[in-house]
Design a protein around this nucleic acid. Structure first.
Lengths: 100, 100
DNA sequence: TTTGTATTTAGATATTTGTCTAAATATATA
DNA sequence: TATATATTTAGACAAATATCTAAATACAAA
């Protein structure tokens, strides 16, 4: 969870996730959406990948990035433990949250 | 959301939330659970309060802290938008998520 | 009022973070 | 092979962060 929260603690990185929600993008396409240098975006992608919030796949000379919903679901379970919503908590139990 | 993710990006602060999940605690009681100075814990409580993840109430000479599930639910909605779980997404719609 | 307890504020410092430019690596194409 | 494109790595630096000690504030009780 540490790397996940670290990755999410930056507006640009959260915006990258929103972009990838729409569909896969290459590193260059992602960089073109922001007013930061390519190395800076590359660094952000690295942190998101360390958190396993995204995965990368080499496609020829490009590298394509996409969301990894597995970790999103773990985060969801973590948040649910604090929710006041009883039915969410029940679902949480179904999802097998065990604390950590 | 910025202050929320900032507040969550620290193990000690997440542990404080877990502690408050069990019930309200005074600043001193919270500090006693950690191997950090009271000023350090006070600072962490301040950041959690800025994010509105917790609320404080003065009770005589003590200050009692408790969870604020309202912001937890907002966070939940934010995470849900990335979830692959379709029924969760439907629920998300019911909760009125509008993006941000 | 004086003393003690609870908590925060102030100020200092080492570490981490986000950003940049320059250079390196990898692949495609002429 | 030589050149161009895509991306990352390396190194530097300013800003933000987590921690500490010392001091200040607020309240309670003797």
């Amino acid at each position: 969870m540490n790397t996940v929260f670290k990755a999410l603690n930056d507006k640009t990185r959260r915006d990258i996730l929103e972009l990838l929600k729409e569909g896969d993008r290459t590193a260059g396409e992602i960089a073109d959406h922001f007013n930061f240098s390519k190395p800076t975006i590359s660094h952000h992608l690295d942190l998101l990948r360390q958190a396993e919030l995204i995965v990368s796949e080499k496609q020829g000379q490009f590298i394509s990035y996409s969301l990894n919903t597995t970790v999103v679901d773990e985060l969801l379970k973590w948040v649910l433990q604090f929710s006041s919503n009883a039915s969410e908590k029940a679902k949480n139990k179904n999802l097998g949250y065990e604390g950590q």
